[in-house]
């Protein structure tokens, strides 16, 4: 029997503790141990992007990390992007542009776009498509997501954030 290990994560600004087997994926710890079901699991081998979170400030696939190996890290999930019930400018743009249907890919999209627009505040459509190319959406056909990112970029630039 393999021993469980104690870990501490700073999730959305709060210190959280869990006791998990080494093989426990970060995605599962977030969902099951910590009850944060906003992080979705699609493929479990790094191709769909639904499980994307920010890990120490940079996007990462939570299905490709063992929680024990990121002990001590700061994690931001989709629940931590806005302030409580407030939608972020990116979330508002997704809402307005109908950039989600079933919503399964949305948490990963939002986290990916959050990092992308922080790095590239004024992207053209080609850059937006490139940034989204590792996140799979089976509903929208992507056009509305691209439109949402374009609008969010403008909104963020105008707000000067």
């Amino acid at each position: 029997m393999i021993e469980k290990l104690d870990i501490t994560l700073i999730v959305n600004g709060r210190e959280r503790h869990a006791r998990v087997e080494p093989r426990r994926l970060l995605a599962d710890v977030l969902r099951h141990e910590l009850g944060l079901k906003g992080t979705h699991i699609g493929c479990e081998h790094g191709v769909c992007g639904a499980c994307t979170v920010l890990l120490d400030g940079r996007s990462a696939r939570s299905c490709l990390h063992f929680a024990v190996a990121v002990d001590g890290a700061e994690i931001t999930t989709v629940e931590g992007l806005g302030g409580g019930d407030e939608l972020t400018p990116i979330q508002q743009a997704f809402h307005r542009n109908h950039a989600l249907q079933c919503g399964y890919c949305t948490p990963g999209m939002l986290v990916t776009v959050q990092e992308f627009l922080a790095r590239e505040p004024d992207p053209d459509d080609a850059a937006i498509r490139r940034a989204l190319s590792n996140n799979i959406c089976r509903c929208t056909g992507y056009a509305n997501i691209v439109a949402a990112v374009r609008e969010a970029a403008r909104a963020l630039r105008e707000a000067g954030t």
Partner: peptide, 9 residues
């Protein structure tokens, strides 16, 4: 290599 989230790690 991969996507941004893969290259970050």
């Amino acid at each position: 290599v991969g996507g941004q989230s893969n290259r970050n790690r």
